[in-house]
Design a binder for these strands. Sequence first.
DNA 1: CGTTTTTTTGAGTACCCTCAACAACGGTGG
DNA 2: CCACCGTTGTTGAGGGTACTCAAAAAAACG
Lengths: 213, 213
Amino acid sequence: MPKTLNEQELTRFDSIVSATRLIKRGDSLYRANDPFHNIYAIRAGSFKSVVMHRDGREQVTGFHLAGEVLGLDGVCTEHHSSDAIAIEDSSVCIIPYALLESLCAESKSLQQQVLRMMSGEIVRESSLMMLLGTMSAEQRVAAFLLNLSSRLKARGYSAAEFNLRMTREEMGNFLGMKLETVSRMFSKFQRDGLLQTHGKQIRIVNLDALGRV
Amino acid sequence: MPKTLNEQELTRFDSIVSATRLIKRGDSLYRANDPFHNIYAIRAGSFKSVVMHRDGREQVTGFHLAGEVLGLDGVCTEHHSSDAIAIEDSSVCIIPYALLESLCAESKSLQQQVLRMMSGEIVRESSLMMLLGTMSAEQRVAAFLLNLSSRLKARGYSAAEFNLRMTREEMGNFLGMKLETVSRMFSKFQRDGLLQTHGKQIRIVNLDALGRV
DNA sequence: CGTTTTTTTGAGTACCCTCAACAACGGTGG
DNA sequence: CCACCGTTGTTGAGGGTACTCAAAAAAACG
């Protein structure tokens, strides 16, 4: 996964990534307040991060695809601050954090890699806040699809045609709107010829126009 | 600032925090796309983080008080991803990131401290997303005031009585609502006996009730 | 194949935004 | 010191976007 490491560093890194774990759709990788021991690299599948209000309402704070990293929220307090729940059958690499930390002391480039990963999370989250803060429902759905598209493209999948793994409700929860509104926006984009949908199957017909929404 | 360092480590840390810098109200500490060299500890004053849309609209993504750290968004890409603008005359400690990074390789506890700081930012931002995603305007303003109150308390200031340094517009922008709505919520809280306002001067009368909104 | 979950669509409503006017505040210069 | 001006804050009226409630169709699941 890290790119800037030399062969020896890579070998040492591989040595701490021992186990993998299978998570079934709907099961959790970790829960809020669980003690923090590991971070996880997603080998296959996808997850959502969820935080719970005291009143029981849930908020989806992110979706995580294969190739991305999960669990960094726990570094600060030694406890996770959200639930990580598989939205399809998935498998992850377990990276024991204590070992990673030790290894960081030995390898500067690995340390830089970890810091970059964390900083990347900060940037991702604040760009998301912008999504929720300044945009209309229509723009939010468009931005969400484009974000997903570019992340899938970066992993070697098609940028134009893909399956949504989450429900309209999860998407709406994440985007700060109701599931009906998400559905309406999809219908609208289809009417306007920007994309074609068939349930969770998405084909983006006019990527540029979607960006201009 | 770091607490878990021994004396020698603290001395070395101090040695890299050489300069301080004064920023006048309205001036920027750094701008989006500036090359990333330093992080900053706020000695006095307060800042806002702002990201700019292509269409020119701005989104405030955070407020930063004295005692907090600023600039970690740049670690990932070597460029800052937001503007940091002083909302009152302020002064910061300059912490050259390259030196901090080197020092991290020598001191494990410093390394942990830096990682914790970053993880803390991630947690803070995602709790903020919840704010924008699931709450009504009334609840958002209440949550914002409580958040500010607890941060001020943690720094030794009064939790009940303080000055807002930002305008209604900046607050509204941050919270995803219009300045008029912020103003109306303040008026409502005052009518309901939860707080007293006089412009930027705030006194929280009933902290519990504000939490139950 | 029946049951449950998910998605779509419609109608009515509530919340927040827009536009507007005015009041209060803070700085500036006469 | 006070008049003046720009900025900031408050409040009202009307309108639009997204929510709520509801029902039915479609898909997923065992």
